[in-house]
Amino acid sequence: MDRWQGKIAVVTGASAGIGAAICKKFVEEGINVVGFARRKEKVEELSKSINGKDGAILHALKVDITVEDDVVAAFKYTAEKFGPISILVNNAGIIQNTTLYDGDTNCWRKVFDTNVLGLCIATREAINIMRRHNVDGHIIHINSVSGHRVPPIPCTNVYSASKFAVTSLAQTLSNELKALGSRIKVTSISPGYVETEIVKVNGFLQNETITKLEKSAPRMYPVDIANAAAYVIRTPPHVQVSELILQPLGEPV
């Protein structure tokens, strides 16, 4: 971790769940973090509770990852205010309570705008900064096991497709960077079920099948994914963890 201490990491979707846990873990390891979130006040509240190593702190920026101008401006501000970005964690992601057979087009669009296009725009902006400042940085996509196999549960509609896209995007980005001779690393972290607010905030509380599964399913917790993110950035410069799949013990493979 020594080479990252005092450096700048950006974490999207930083207000709760996995994003908040990664912010906390990185700051405790001595990395200065800028948390992007629509609920900026949640990130500010989290910042007050973290004891950062060597003075590292969590900064909050109000950013809607689906609005390109927001994302571009946030990266520009971060680089000018805090310094070059060394790590990007693309954590922002949503799932919508709809279907494919009679689904809501706006719900589908929100998923792709957040999980795919928002991720691509954030990645582009971070890499442009890294390359301008000759930073051998690290891009982490928080993916899902749903990006490798389609879960046999209802109402996931375009979510799994969006995560399959993330799997492809990580591999494609790695190939593009390799062709440039860049030493920026790319890692896709694909968790199984993690206990977060995702069921509550995306309107699934009325879906009996989903709520029943949520209550009984084996689970991990945000801190487990934060520890995984810390592990992949700890690897030496010549080692790239391209894909890391984590599942709670007992979850179907």
Results as ranks from 00 to 15, higher is better:
residue 99 T to P: 08
residue 108 W to A: 06
residue 80 E to C: 03
residue 67 V to R: 03
residue 83 G to A: 10
residue 88 L to T: 06
residue 102 D to I: 05
residue 98 T to R: 09
residue 88 L to D: 01
residue 78 T to W: 07
residue 72 V to D: 13
residue 85 I to C: 05
residue 98 T to N: 05
residue 90 N to C: 12
residue 103 G to Q: 04
residue 110 K to Y: 01
residue 73 A to D: 15
residue 74 A to P: 09
residue 111 V to S: 03
residue 87 I to A: 00
residue 107 C to D: 10
residue 83 G to M: 15
residue 72 V to E: 13
residue 105 T to H: 02
residue 74 A to Y: 10
residue 102 D to W: 04
residue 91 N to T: 01
residue 66 T to N: 12
residue 77 Y to F: 15
residue 103 G to F: 02
residue 102 D to Y: 06
residue 100 L to P: 00
residue 97 N to A: 02
residue 92 A to W: 09
residue 78 T to M: 01
residue 82 F to N: 06
residue 73 A to L: 11
residue 72 V to P: 04
residue 92 A to C: 07
residue 86 S to D: 15
residue 72 V to L: 04
residue 102 D to Q: 09
residue 91 N to G: 01
residue 114 T to Q: 14
residue 82 F to P: 09
residue 112 F to V: 15
residue 73 A to N: 14
residue 106 N to Q: 09
residue 76 K to F: 05
residue 95 I to Y: 02
residue 107 C to S: 08
residue 89 V to T: 15
residue 93 G to P: 08
residue 97 N to L: 01
residue 69 D to H: 06
residue 97 N to C: 01
residue 76 K to R: 12
residue 94 I to P: 01
residue 68 E to L: 04
residue 76 K to D: 14
residue 84 P to E: 12
residue 80 E to V: 02
residue 114 T to F: 08
residue 82 F to L: 07
residue 74 A to E: 11
residue 98 T to G: 05
residue 89 V to N: 12
residue 84 P to F: 07
residue 68 E to A: 13
residue 87 I to E: 00
residue 67 V to Y: 04
residue 86 S to I: 01
residue 100 L to F: 07
residue 76 K to W: 09
residue 103 G to K: 07
residue 76 K to H: 04
residue 109 R to P: 00
residue 71 V to Y: 08
residue 98 T to M: 13
residue 99 T to L: 05
residue 104 D to K: 05
residue 101 Y to R: 05
residue 102 D to T: 03
residue 74 A to G: 09
residue 100 L to S: 03
residue 101 Y to L: 04
residue 80 E to M: 02
residue 68 E to I: 11
residue 106 N to K: 07
residue 108 W to Y: 11
residue 107 C to K: 10
residue 80 E to H: 07
residue 114 T to C: 12
residue 85 I to Q: 00
residue 66 T to G: 09
residue 101 Y to W: 06
residue 103 G to N: 10
residue 70 D to C: 02
residue 68 E to C: 04
residue 90 N to W: 14
residue 102 D to C: 02
residue 77 Y to M: 12
residue 93 G to L: 04
residue 67 V to D: 10
residue 110 K to H: 04
residue 67 V to G: 06
residue 77 Y to E: 14
residue 73 A to Q: 10
residue 73 A to H: 13
residue 108 W to Q: 06
residue 89 V to M: 10
residue 72 V to N: 12
residue 104 D to N: 11
residue 78 T to A: 01
residue 72 V to W: 09
residue 81 K to V: 11
residue 108 W to D: 07
residue 94 I to T: 11
residue 95 I to C: 14
residue 95 I to K: 10
residue 90 N to V: 13
residue 79 A to V: 15
residue 97 N to K: 02
residue 111 V to W: 13
residue 102 D to A: 08
residue 102 D to E: 13
residue 76 K to G: 11
residue 84 P to Y: 13
residue 81 K to Y: 12
residue 79 A to S: 13
residue 66 T to L: 07
residue 112 F to M: 14
residue 71 V to S: 09
residue 110 K to E: 03
residue 109 R to H: 08
residue 93 G to N: 15
